[in-house]
């Protein structure tokens, strides 16, 4: 084997947080998405990626920039563009229904989170390349700068690549 060794470093994106990166070898990770939605954005050409961990559809995001879909998604787009991204596309992960009682008064929090994220992406004209959403299981998502790969692992399953170039 030859070639360049890339040192992989994982950057945790916790609930209500977001991160963007254009550093080769960097991986943005969110562990344990339940009803939350992980929004991955990347430039269509260059390896510039971002990940937000959205908890609820709307609200006041003071202190937790990515807590809400309506503020978190535009802010993530802004961060990725600040690193040089021009045209964006997205992969969304999560929005599961883990408990039945979280569905009081209509749609569950997971489904409402997904709908709110889709609405924001639509408003920003960012196409969704893949959605790994719904169901009842927790998920872990990794967004690799290298190859702009997005991998998802559901609980008790193997890691699966849902996007890459």
């Amino acid at each position: 084997m030859g070639g360049v060794t890339v040192i992989v470093s994982e950057l945790m994106v916790r609930m209500g947080e977001l991160a963007a990166s254009a550093t080769p070898g960097e991986v943005l990770v969110t562990i344990g998405l339940g009803s939350c939605v992980g929004v991955a954005l990347f430039d269509v050409r260059r390896p510039i990626v971002g990940l937000a961990h959205v908890m609820l559809p709307t609200g006041d995001a003071t202190g937790a920039p990515a807590k809400f879909a309506d503020t978190g998604v535009p802010l993530l787009a802004q961060r990725v563009k600040a690193l040089g991204a021009a045209r964006l596309e997205a992969v969304i992960v999560g929005g599961a229904q883990m408990f039945t009682f979280s569905g009081e008064g209509g749609a569950t929090i997971g489904a409402r989170n997904e709908a709110a994220v889709r609405e924001q992406l639509d408003r920003l004209s960012i196409p969704i390349r893949h959605a790994k959403t719904g169901g009842s299981r927790g998920r872990t998502v990794r967004v690799h700068v290298e190859g702009v790969r997005v991998t998802v692992r559901e609980v008790a399953a193997t890691e699966e690549q849902v996007y890459g170039r």
Binding site: I31, D60, A64, N113, G138
Partner: peptide, 27 residues
């Protein structure tokens, strides 16, 4: 108390979902 629900999953996913369900407008 309401009837319990049992779920087997990642601790982080369980806890995050419980916190989201409470939907407090604070951090």
């Amino acid at each position: 108390p309401r009837p319990p629900e049992t779920v087997a999953d990642m601790v982080g996913a369980i806890l995050a979902t419980v916190l989201a369900t409470q939907a407090d407008q604070t951090n």
